[in-house]
Structures are given as structure tokens and as C-alpha cells.
Design a protein around this nucleic acid. Structure first.
Lengths: 339, 339
DNA sequence: TTAGCTGGGTAAATCGTTTTATGCAATTGC
DNA sequence: GCAATTGCATAAAACGATTTACCCAGCTAA
């Protein structure tokens, strides 16, 4: 197997008996070459297996065909595959596949703002940033370098931004609450996270609004996302202090799993003694006993929209960039009262 | 926020009143500059926030600080996050983290041999290829382009290769079989996959050897990896045809899950009626009912070794490149006979 | 006749680095 | 006292593309 140096534009030009400019123009539909010459060059290039070097091209054009993805909540956890959080992996996987459809590929970048970062980080064409928090340093960094980006979830600090894709968390929350109410719950406790992102904010607002409309007293709790199941477990005594709720709606899957566990230890089993639902679907909610009703945020759809928007922006277009994606309630045993 | 063009080596040189060569040499510990000059340049560069452009550097050096990872078994599945297969995701995640320790970052490349591939694919510093099959086209491609790579699992077609890291599958298989035997099994059926990779081959060989040593008749079955749980389920009637085995050792987790299900439907429950163990640990084996005894291949350790080896190679060293990693048997209920 | 256009092409600058080949004092060796 | 070495620094080539500016022959229009 000959370690043959890759064929360059110069080689193609030599073989075709033209200048390298001609080759570049032929292959990029630029310049004023005759159609015959173009075609001839294209054929020769193809025959020689020529493929433009991405680095050289990127150096000139400053587009390299790669976008980055930053999973903020996992940055915070400093663990990129925590058990029970498959939303981000599904999203990242789907984003990678969607990127290919746009001739891009996707590179996961860990923690853009601390420590040594991949050398390529600032040469990427653009970024997807999931669930930025208010005044997110990653967003600031990208802004300051004028690197295009799209956020998954609105940036709470930038109400007028127009480069986001988000699940319709307000609608999803109301759907879940309505479902619990239909199954007989009246006194519904809400457990959110502490990150200052739009996902927490929108869901809380929707919960408070929903309670106000029905004139019931809201019972809102918060637990840091980073604590995972323990965060949910530890919340339960406090939650029970104010009386056993008819239902609990927990935004994160790990909190829900912890809540379910601690409630069981206290003798409360869903759906007999209380109803339980969760704001994001995950392996854990599916395999829990009983399986937990959850909202499928449809990460695949979100990923497709997000990447499509970013691809448009990197191409220099100025698309309408505020896109809401409907999510879907998956009803499981934990919230179904037998009638 | 000014869209300031990034600071280049030229800017630093101008500010320091030296040539760009001096800056390059100072920052890369090359050349013959005086230590004072070096230090002065380093300070100025740091103060200006200079960071060498990865593309330009890569163009010259042909090292870009990024390695690729190709997950062959997932290429075959054409689904990069199949439920029940968390081994590869754990491996990829751990590899990304390990890469950072070597100043590299990791990019997942889907299916290097078909369709349009990321433009950067052939400019990467090297590749990790998981579980190559015999005459794997991806391996051939990398060879022909003389791009360095390390395989996870030996390449069955290249017995003399010295660029692999692998779990010690022969030892692991014997450990699992011994464990089953200790719990009373004598007639142990083995279910492998059909991919022609070293993982299947080594485990099968170990099984056959183990049986021969004990003078028992081997019962070896194979089912395509791609069929997943269904592959395990469909195998069960055939398996039972030759009598109910004392124990079943299934290499893949998805097959094991399918087998467990179909066995239950036939009225056979582990560990009462037969013992069950599995050659790779996964979410599914942990959460199955009963939980399934499995081998933890320790993907984190494998990833660390694999990336370390590749990093050495890309730096131009010629390290000893055959590394076996011990795996660990995790005993769960499915294989424990009460005494 | 000549200035101006047009079609088809090329030379050279450019992107931001690294690396190789030089240059020039000051010092050393004999 | 002169060649050789040493120490420090720079000029210029190279990497492989894209893009800008230019060239030239052949027409057209006045």
C-alpha cells in the first residue's frame, strides 16, 4: 500500500494542463470558464480522486464544515454520560445525523470556557449551545469572537434574541398538569431545578399561572439539577411537611426517580397514594416501577430544527430564528388513577 | 461587542518589535532565541490573548489536535444510540475526556466509507476504530491514506498488527463460565454474534476450549448483532430443542435480554430454572428482572489506553502497541443459585 | 482606424502558521 | 591577525486552497 501523498489542486491542474485557478473555478462554479473546460476539469478531478483539503480551504474561506455542540448542563455536571440523562445524548446523536444532511459534521466541545480547549474550537463554523443560563459565559465568548450560534432553549438574559429553538415548555407543563387534574389531582406540587435557564423559568411560570387560574395555592420546590436522584429524595421530607400532595410534577427525570423512591420509603406508592409525572422522558422514567408518565421533548425534532437554523446562519442567510417545537405527553402508570 | 478579528502572530510580532519567526520560535520552544526574548514574547502573547490558529498550523504541520472515532458496530446498525447499547457511548464519552488529557479532542465520524463524509475526515491526526471486522474497509481506507489509527479489539485479518487495545475476552469468558460452573451449571450454552471480529472469535475459542478441558459437549449458537433483542428471542426455541441448558452465556446484552424474555414465556425463570450471564454490561442488564450477571469491560479504562496509544503514535513515537485490559465479572441475581 | 467590450483564461496575493536557509556581530581558536 | 565558531535573530519558502486583479485575442461600434 503506497503511502501516497494526497492529490492536490496542483496535481489536477498539471494533469488537465490548466492553471490551479481554473481548477478551483471549475469545481466551485466561479469565474468565467467555458462549460467544456469546466466539465473536462471536473472529470479529471473526479478520476484522480481529488478532494479539496479542508484545512487549506478553511484558512482562506474560514468555513470548515464542522459545527460544535456544547451541552451546558453536562458541563456543569462535569460528567458527560450521567446515568438517567439520555436526553442530551439523544439530542447530540440526532444533531450529528442532521448535520450530515447539511454537509456539516458535529464535534462535541467540552467546557469552552475553562481549561485548555480543543485547538479547533474557535475555527468551527458555528455552535449549538444547549440550555444556556442567564449571562452564560459560553454565549458571551461566542459573541465576543463573533462565532455564530444557536441556543436550544432561550437565553433568559436575551429576550430579543432570534437564534433559538426551544420546546414549548409552557404548553407542555399545562398539558401535564391538566392530565394530572383529569386523573383527580387538585393539590399538585411542582419540583423544578435551580439553573437559571428558560426551561425552568417557563415551566415555573406556567405552573404558577395554572394554579392562579384555578385558584389553588401553588406548592413550588426547587432542587439543584446537579444533585440528581439525591436531590429528589432529600426534598421529600420538606414536601411532606406541608401535607401529602395529590400529585407531584417533577421537571427532571432524576429528581422524579429520587422522589418516587423516597415516597415509597414513606409508604406512598404511585399511582395509589399520589400521582407522579415528569417533565422529560428518559431511560429511568421508562424502567421505573411503576413507569413514570413523562413529557417527550422530542430531541430528534429539536436537533433537526436547531441544526437547520445554524446551517442557514453559517451560510450567511438571515432566517427567522425563533422556533418552538411541540412536545408530547407519554402517559404511563404512575399518573393513572383507575376509575 | 466589537467583532474584533482574532489576534494573529503578526500582531504579536509587531507589538513585541520582533519578527513572526521569533514569536513562533518563542512559543514553540524552537530556534535559538535568548531566554529573555522568549519570555518577553510569551508575556506579550499571553497579554494579547494570542492563540495560534489551528487551521493554519495544521496546514503546515499536518497535525490539528483532533482525532476521530469510528464506532463500527453502530455504523452497521445505522443507529447511533440504540437502546440497551451503552458500551459504545460510555467508551466514546470516556475517549473524549481522555483525549483532552493529551491536548487532543475527539470527533465522532459516521461511516467513513460511504456517502459524503465530513470534509475534515482526512485531515484528522488519527483514528480510533472500535471492533473492526476482518478486512474492514475503514481500516483499509486509513491504511491507504496512511492515517494512523488504533483499533479497539484486534483486527482479525491482521494477526501481526501492533496497534490495538483490547479487553481480555478469553480470560473474561473463562471467568464467567467458571462462575456459572461454581453455581452448579454443567451444560452451558453459548450465544455469540455473527460479526467477524476478535471479540466474537476470542470468546468462542475460549468457550470451546473450556468445554474441551471439561470434556462436555459445547452448544454454540450465533445470532446477528443487528437483530438485538429479537435475535435473542428467536434463538430460544432452537436452543431448547436440544434440551434445557443449565446455563446460558450470551455475549451481547441485547441478545441476553431477548433470551431472558423468551425463556420466561416458556416458563423458565432465572436463576431458578437456569442461570444467565452476559458478556457485556449495559443499562439493560442492570435493570432487567432479575438483574443479569455481566462482564464489565471497563470501557473507561479501554478508552484511556486506546487514546494514550494513539496519542503516542501521532506524536511520532513507536510505542509497544498491544495492550490487553482485564475486565471484571459483576455477579447479579440471574446466575446465583441459592445454596 | 481605433477605442471599448467580451469571452476565456492565468498570475499573484492572500489566509496564518511553521520551518529552512541565511545574516550578522561578537567571540574563540590557532 | 584571520578564519572559524557561536549566539541571536530574521527573510523567505512552504502548506493548499480561494480570490482578486490582470491579460490577451477577437469582435463590435463609431
Amino acid at each position: 500500500m503506497a503511502a501516497h501523498r494526497n492529490v492536490t489542486i496542483k496535481d489536477v491542474a498539471a494533469r488537465a494542463g490548466v492553471s490551479i485557478t481554473a481548477v478551483s473555478h471549475a469545481l466551485n462554479e466561479k469565474g468565467t470558464l467555458s462549460e467544456e473546460t469546466r466539465e473536462r476539469i471536473r472529470e479529471i478531478a473526479a478520476a484522480m480522486g481529488y478532494q479539496a483539503d479542508a484545512l487549506a480551504r478553511g484558512l482562506r474561506r474560514s468555513r470548515i464544515g464542522v459545527i460544535g455542540i456544547v451541552l451546558r448542563p453536562l458541563d456543569a455536571l462535569a460528567d458527560y454520560s450521567p446515568p438517567g440523562v439520555d436526553y442530551f445524548l439523544r439530542f447530540a446523536g440526532a444533531a450529528a445525523v442532521s448535520a450530515l444532511d447539511h454537509g456539516l459534521s458535529l464535534m462535541q466541545v467540552a467546557d469552552l470556557v475553562k481549561g485548555p480547549v480543543t485547538p479547533l474550537a474557535f475555527s468551527l463554523d458555528g455552535y449549538v449551545v444547549t440550555d444556556p443560563v442567564r449571562d452564560d459565559p459560553v454565549v458571551d465568548l461566542l459573541e465576543s469572537r463573533s462565532i455564530p450560534y444557536v441556543t436550544l432553549g432561550r437565553d433568559p438574559g436575551k429576550p430579543t434574541a432570534s437564534n433559538w429553538v426551544a420546546s414549548d415548555d409552557a404548553a407542555a407543563t399545562r398539558t401535564a398538569l391538566d392530565h394530572l387534574a383529569e386523573n383527580g389531582a387538585r393539590d399538585i406540587a411542582f419540583v423544578g431545578g435551580t439553573d437559571d435557564n428558560s426551561w425552568n423559568a417557563d415551566a415555573e411560570d406556567a405552573y404558577l399561572g395554572w394554579c392562579a387560574e384555578r385558584d389553588v395555592t401553588p406548592r413550588l420546590f426547587r432542587s439543584p439539577e446537579g444533585l440528581g436522584e439525591a436531590g429528589g429524595r432529600d426534598l421529600v421530607p420538606r414536601l411532606l411537611d406541608s401535607g401529602v400532595p395529590d400529585a407531584i410534577y417533577s421537571l427532571t427525570g432524576r429528581h422524579a426517580a429520587g422522589i418516587q423512591e423516597a415516597m415509597r420509603e414513606q409508604g406512598y406508592i404511585a399511582p395509589e397514594h399520589y400521582l407522579l409525572a415528569c417533565g422529560t422522558d428518559a431511560a429511568q422514567t421508562r424502567t421505573a416501577e411503576p413507569p413514570i408518565t413523562a413529557i417527550d421533548l422530542r430531541p430528534e425534532v429539536l436537533a433537526r430544527e436547531t441544526v437547520a437554523l445554524l446551517a442557514q446562519i453559517t451560510r450567511g442567510e438571515s432566517p427567522e430564528g425563533r422556533r418552538l417545537v411541540e412536545s408530547e405527553l407519554i402517559v404511563r402508570r404512575s399518573s393513572q388513577r383507575e376509575r
